[in-house]
């Protein structure tokens, strides 16, 4: 297992506690879908009224440089971000 940090933005801000990121333990070489499933499990465990599975499904996983493609594998500890659908401007 490896530990990753995930930053929260937009509609996920309501799940912040003391920091704007969460820590997760995930299997080495997890896929993007696996990361999103781990995030959903994390929220379900901590928030009884969690109901944003669909929003997680529609969200992208990114690092500071790029949105990660669906076939990206997470090899080691790192900091990622979950990005809900965007609406700048």
């Amino acid at each position: 297992m490896i530990e990753i940090q995930v930053r929260l933005f937009g509609a996920f801000r309501k799940y912040e506690t003391d920091q704007a990121l969460i820590s997760l333990k995930i299997p080495e070489l997890s896929s993007i879908e696996g990361v999103k499933n781990s995030i959903a499990s994390h929220f379900k465990e901590r928030f009884k009224d969690f109901s944003d599975e669909a929003l997680i499904k529609d969200s992208a996983i990114a690092d500071e440089r790029r949105v990660l493609e669906a076939n990206t594998l997470i090899e080691r500890s790192c900091t990622l971000a979950i990005l809900p659908p965007v609406c700048g401007g």
Partner: peptide
């Protein structure tokens, strides 16, 4: 660092 694989798939 920490991630691998970058072929585009165009899906979530």
């Amino acid at each position: 660092e920490g991630v691998s694989g970058n072929k585009p798939t165009g899906t979530c």
